[in-house]
Structures are given as C-alpha cells and as structure tokens.
Design a protein around this nucleic acid. Sequence first.
DNA 1: CCTATATTTCGCCATATAACGAATTATATT
DNA 2: AATATAATTCGTTATATGGCGAAATATAGG
Lengths: 120, 120
Amino acid sequence: MREIMNITKALSDASRVRALMLLTDGPLCVCQIIAMLGLAPSTTSKHMSILRQAGLVEATKEGRWMHYRLAPKTVSKQVRQALGWVVSGLEDDPQIRRDKSKLKKLIKVDKEALCRKQRN
Amino acid sequence: MREIMNITKALSDASRVRALMLLTDGPLCVCQIIAMLGLAPSTTSKHMSILRQAGLVEATKEGRWMHYRLAPKTVSKQVRQALGWVVSGLEDDPQIRRDKSKLKKLIKVDKEALCRKQRN
DNA sequence: CCTATATTTCGCCATATAACGAATTATATT
DNA sequence: AATATAATTCGTTATATGGCGAAATATAGG
C-alpha cells in the first residue's frame, strides 16, 4: 500500500504533475524545470525529490547539472501504469499544451546561458 | 487538468483509498464504511464527499441510509483508468486483505443492528 | 406533533505541505 | 587556494488537510 500511496501523494500537487508532463518529451535539467514552473530553485528541487522517491522519475548528475527523466518502463507495474493514466489523461490539457509550447522555445536557449540565469 | 488533480488528491489519503477498495466487492452503507475505517462519522462523511466530487464513487440514499458504490464504467476515461490502477495495484495488499476479511464478517451483521450502533 | 436515528455540515485543533530565502554542498574555473 | 555556479538542504511561514465533537439536517416511527 505504501508504494501506491507514495505515488498518489506525489501526484497530488499540480506543479509536480506539470513537471512530469514536461519530461514526457525527454530528459530535462532541473534549471529548465525551474524556468518552466516559475518556482524557486529550492521548491523545485524538493518537488523533484518527492517524484524521485515515489519512483516516478530518475536523476543523473553531469557536473553541476542535474538531469531528470521519467522512470523507465522497467520500473514497477504500479509506476508504469500510474504514469500511463496520468500522461494519457493530460496530453490534451490546455495547461500542458501551453507548457510544452513554452518548453520548445526554452530548449532552443543554450543550456549554459539558461543555467547562468538561474541564480538563488 | 482539474479532473486529474481532483482524482489524484482524492487518492492521496489512505483511508479514502481503503474506502474505495471496500467498495470493489459491492455497494456499502456509510455506516458500514465508518465501522470499517474506525473513523468518526463526520470524518468518514467528508472523505466520501471528496471521493464523490472526484467522480470516483456515487451515492444513493435509501431512507436514512446512504449507500456508496464505485463509479460505473460509463464515467470518464480518467476515472476509469485511475480506478483500474488503484484496484489492480492493491488487490494483493495485506491491509486491503485484512479489510476485506473484516468486511465479510461485518456484512453478516444485520444492517439495522449495525446502524443503530453508530451513534454520534 | 415529539422522539429517535442516520448522515452531513460546521467549527476547532493538530499536523502536513508548499512556498520562500539563506545556508550548505557539490562542481567547475582561474 | 579563491571565486563562481548549480543544486540541495534547512528553517520559517502561510495555507491546506485530516481528525474530532457539536450542531444541523433528513428520515422514520409512535
């Protein structure tokens, strides 16, 4: 029951769900997620930590940069299916569409330049 | 996005998830759910209200008794998929098994007798 | 009508949670 | 080493949420 509850709790915040949906098109650096969500870096970091502990995302560090990606298909059935219904349920959502549109523009910015803009 | 968030928020409390799982074997009176969850009637009523607003359960009144049932398959895709996920993910859970075992015994008690026991 | 019963709503309280800024940690550059 | 940068952790605050008992509402019976 704990695994299911960890997942449902992780999904009960809209910003976290938005972060998940951003990752459906590929991995992102946390600095990109910060820019997308418009939250403080500390807040975003904590949200990603919750998603990670719930098994919904994975993280890899490259130098100073922390990249997050959706959990691979090899994870547990509960994670895979939860991602399945959330992602399919939101792919036509207006907010998510706006986010993805904005993300396309943001990705065109050089990562170094973007990350330098994110100061505490 | 609101529908999905209503669902995920509704599912983020363990008592509410337990209530949902109790209903997989058929409709129950709120007095039976109260007895199962061991919460105050007012608390249980509020939890069921949240589930109802999320579209996960439906309610019908019979005299003094309020019966709750899982939302029928005809509801939205998001609800159907979410319910499918929760139910399949928890059908082998120890807590849920204990609940279902207890529920079998409880159902054997006459409803009238049970409901009379539930005083505010 | 009055009384009893089942359920919901309301008000309160304790706890959890999301947000922020500051401090800390990890990494890179000079 | 000192300095800069990215991310996380920590501490604080405002808000949300789960729990309870009391009050209110709805229904049934005499």
